[in-house]
Amino acid sequence: MSVFKFPESIRSRPVYGILEPRPGRSHLMIADCEGAEAILDLAAQASDLMANTHIIFIPNGTLFGPKLQELNPAQYYEGPSFAAALSRIQRVLSDAVMGLQIYLTGTEGMMGQAQNEAMQAGYDYTAIQTEHRGSVARRMQCVHCKGITEDVIIDPFECSHCGLNLFVRDHYSRRIAAFQGVCIDAEDPGNVPASVELYS
C-alpha cells in the first residue's frame, strides 16, 4: 500500500495532494520509488501529456521503470539516487520556460529537495504539484549542527553528524527541504526516552 494519510498537523508541515493534469507547454515529472504509481495514475487520465513530458525516476530498488517507459514520454531518465539525478534536474530547470508544469511524487525527502531546486530556478512553490507515495521516513535537519539525517523513521533519533539525540518536529523548511530535529535531553542530559516508530 503506497498511500498514507498524514494526520492533521501544524501550518508549516507540507500537505500533499493528488497529481492532476494541468495545461502547459511541457511537463516535468520527478518520482522516486512508489511515486511511479502516481505517475501511472496521472498518465491514465491524460495520456496526451506524455508527448511533452520528461520523466525523471529514481527507483531505489523498485521495479516500476519499464512501466514508466511504456508511457512513452518525450524524455525518460532513471537515476540511482537523487544526488545522481541532481545535475540533470538543474540542467532541465536552467533553460525551462514559463508554461512548464512540475509534478513531484514519492517520498517527502525527494519531493522536498526537487521542489527546492525548482524554487531556486525561480518557480513559485505554490504551482508545483506534489503527491506522497511510499515511505513516511523523514529528511531531518539537526537544528544544532545543521547536518541532515536522511530516512529517519524513529523518534527520537541520533543525529548522524553530531550524535545528539533529537526529537522529530513537524516544523518544516522548504528551503532546507527537511523537518526540524531538536535535542531531546538538553535540560536533563542523558534522559532519552525509548524511540518509537513514526506514526506507530
Binding site: P23, G99, D124, T126
Partner: peptide, 10 residues
Amino acid sequence: AASAGWPDAH
C-alpha cells in the same frame, strides 16, 4: 496565462 500553464503566483 492560465491556459498557457502560468502559475497564478506569477
